[in-house]
Design a protein around this nucleic acid. Structure first.
Length: 715
DNA sequence: AGCACGCCGACT
DNA sequence: GTCGGCGTGCTC
């Protein structure tokens, strides 16, 4: 702490110790009022000779402080105080009384060195340069700025997500020079995709192709993803891949190692620990390593001269950052791809509506295999309609359809059988009694919910009652609550095969893999073990159709299909006896898409529907929530774009429900309003909400409001 | 957000 | 004449 000096009594009353220096930093012919001209922590230390002003991003995530502050650079720090380094500065209410030191020390980053400042007062000096490591590079700063704007958040909040905390020990270690770029990789199994080799060639030649990749079922995708990264590396550029969890990241990391050895890439996941993580981050930042595979925080990894950004399975909820301003990895990587002119690869077994929109709009090209190739790689999909079971709740949980039993029995002779069961905790809402289509509001297409069993339903978005609902699909006027739960079916299954070992994998106990031997593997979605070595599961039983499809969430169908496809992709091809049995009504759109193994087709149809109904991502939405007065106040003061449409506010289920972080405090009522704008007005909406939020906080007009762009739970 | 300033009423 | 309520505005 070179600048932590004791306070001199009466210092404030004296003229500045070095009037010439202060004139220099105050800028040309500016006569600041005398009381403002008193330096605060100033000890008369000389200033840096060139560029004596440092523009600093103060590390406080307050929306109304979302700007830079200028500080004087003492001569002693002239060399160290480079753009991008971490600093400590005094920040807070000034010492206008001349008696106190300024506010406390806070952290920050130098974003720029300048010859002068436009601040009319006297600049406080930098208190300390914490480290000479230039962590917030201009490219990273620009990305953080774009992400903050996109999500109506504060720059400092985004920087906190992007730059890991400092670990001094990790900084002391030197990083080796980078390895020479590897040779251009052979396409390998990318040859199964007509556009695959061309995509790789473009990357290898320094191009920036953008693709939405529908991966084929089977275990090849990690190697294919790694091959695309290697192609970008072979052009002398860097590559980055974001995966939804540590397990899948490790698989791609292994594939890269198999392809290139260990000198070219790092794995950036939470389980490495903070110090190792920072060391690897520094290896990238210093240009010692050019490729990174990781979970969502890796989307900000400081790869210089990036050639490819990739994201796997963008429908997985883990790609949504849960800290403010809640950015999504796919969106961040899209911004990054545009800013740094890189290739873009969005891969998955399924296809989100956002991915379909990227193809539809022409922003990305589709990278999919021919129908015959898909059919040869996919397992046989069979469906069991459960309408018969639905008549009797007891039968539904206790009895297994005989086809499921036979499928499992036959498959267990050849290998392991995967049983996918739902996770607990789905919110029951209303659906058509006959066709089970989730019931939607006739006015805004929000989901209907029943406040009490014997009352008419309300819209959960706009609050309008809907006493005379009728199903647009089948004309039925009767509603039913959605049913959840099929776990006992799996237990029943275990009892039906007493001779076979039953293994379970779930949120608490994730089983990474199982041997290629007969066993029942019961797993919740997302925790399915892969089969070691062999051709994959002999069969899969997908039992969670009801729980998923009954949800009124906009993404219910897409999410059901995504989970089914991820499980079904672990099953061996139909030609080798692989069978998937899904318990769900055959006529449902996601079920048909699974049977035909056509996830892009499903996403395209969903996209067309949403365009008609004005739902995201065809329109952009924002959620504003907080106490009723706060929400009302923000909506009143905000100057929204002219084409914005406000839905609600309506009360949010608070007390009694599961307590979510950042949600309403127990016992208090919270409201939520949704604002939707047509395509093209998203940026204006974010900007309007951000400035209204800033004004509100600055003037302290009542309790805080939460603003969320692209709310995930609008249905 | 903190934090300090300042303008007003109540008390010594 | 002095203390302290909180309404208002700034932080380089």
């Amino acid at each position: 702490m070179t600048s932590e000096e004791p306070r001199h009594a009466g210092e404030g009353e004296r003229p500045a110790p070095d009037a010439e220096q202060l004139a220099l930093i105050r800028g040309p012919a500016r006569s600041a009022p005398r009381e403002r001209a008193r330096p605060r922590t100033w000890r008369g230390a000389p200033l840096a000779e060139s560029l004596p002003v440092a523009r600093v991003l103060v590390d406080k995530g307050l929306v109304h402080l979302d700007r830079f502050f200028d500080y004087a650079v003492p001569a002693a720090m002239a060399d160290e105080a480079r753009p991008g380094v971490r600093v400590r500065v005094r920040f807070g209410a000034g010492e206008r009384g001349g008696r106190r030191e300024g506010g406390g020390l806070v952290g920050g980053y130098i974003v720029e060195r300048r010859p002068d400042s436009d601040y009319p007062g006297v600049l406080a000096p930098l208190a300390q340069v914490l480290s000479t490591e230039q962590v917030l590079t201009p490219a990273l700063l620009r990305l953080c700025r774009a992400v903050a704007d996109r999500y109506a958040g504060a720059l400092a909040d985004v920087v906190q997500l992007a730059v890991p905390p400092r670990m001094a020990r990790a900084e002391r270690k030197e990083s080796p020079p980078p390895a020479a770029p590897p040779a251009e990789p052979a396409p390998g199994t990318w040859s199964r995709f007509p556009q695959g080799p061309g995509f790789l060639r473009s990357l290898a030649r320094g191009g920036a192709p953008r693709a939405v990749w529908t991966a084929l079922p089977g275990p090849q995708w990690p190697t294919e993803l790694a091959t695309a990264m290697a192609a970008a590396l072979s052009s002398g550029r860097g590559a980055l891949a974001v995966l939804p969890d540590g397990r899948s990241a490790a698989r791609v990391d292994d594939a890269l190692t198999a392809l290139l050895g260990s000198g070219h890439h790092v794995l950036l996941t939470a389980d490495a620990g903070p110090e190792a993580r920072y060391r690897r981050w520094l290896a990238l930042s210093r240009g010692s390593v050019r490729a990174v595979v990781g979970t969502r925080a890796a989307m900000f990894a400081p790869v210089p001269h990036l050639g490819l950004v990739a994201v796997w399975d963008d429908g997985d909820a883990a790609h949504s950052e849960e800290r403010a301003p809640l950015p999504h990895a796919r969106e961040v990587l899209m911004l990054r791809s545009a800013q740094e002119n890189t290739g873009f690869l969005l891969g998955a077994h399924s296809c989100t509506v956002e991915a379909a929109q990227l193809v539809e709009s022409g922003w990305a090209r589709s990278l999919a295999a021919d129908r015959e190739t898909v059919r040869a790689a996919a397992p046989l999909i069979r469906t069991v309609d459960d309408t018969e079971q639905a008549r009797d709740a007891a039968a539904r949980t206790a009895r297994l359809p005989s086809l499921a039993w036979r499928t499992a029995r036959d498959a267990l002779e050849r290998g392991p059988v995967l049983v996918q069961v739902p996770r607990r905790g789905y919110v029951p809402r209303l659906a058509c009694e006959r066709c089970r289509e989730p019931a939607r509001c006739g006015h805004c297409h929000g989901p209907l919910a029943s406040p009490a069993a014997d009352r008419a339903p309300d819209c959960a978005w706009c609050g309008r009652p809907e006493p005379h609902w009728s199903c647009p699909g089948c004309g039925c006027t009767r509603l039913r609550a959605t049913v959840v739960g099929a776990r006992r079916t799996a237990e029943e299954l275990g009892r039906a095969f007493p001779a076979v070992p039953v293994r379970t994998s779930g949120r608490d106990h994730v089983l990474p893999s199982v041997p290629d031997r007969p066993a029942l593997v019961v797993s919740t979605p997302g925790a399915e073990p892969v089969v070691e070595e062999g051709p994959g599961y002999a069969a899969a039983l997908l039992l969670d159709g009801w729980a998923l499809l009954g949800r009124p969430d906009l993404r219910a169908g897409e999410e059901a299909l995504r989970r089914w496809l991820n499980a079904a992709a672990l099953v061996r091809p139909a030609g080798e006896g692989g069978t998937v049995l899904v318990i769900a009504e055959q006529g449902l759109r996601p079920v048909q898409a699974l049977v035909r193994w056509d996830p892009p087709g499903h996403a395209r149809r969903e996209l067309a529907d949403r365009a008609v109904l004005g739902l995201p991502p065809v329109s952009r939405m924002a959620a504003v929530s907080g106490s009723p007065e706060a929400v009302e106040g923000l909506l009143r003061t905000a100057t929204l774009p002219g084409d914005a449409e406000v839905l609600g506010p309506v009360p949010v289920a608070g007390a009694g429900g599961p307590r979510r972080p950042g949600g309403p405090p127990p016992g208090e009522r919270w409201d939520r309003a949704l604002i939707r704008v047509p395509p093209g007005s998203g940026a204006a909406l974010a900007a309007a909400l951000k400035s209204a939020q800033a004004a509100r906080l600055a003037r302290r007009q009542g309790p805080p409001v939460r603003v969320r762009i692209d709310p995930p739970d609008i249905g």
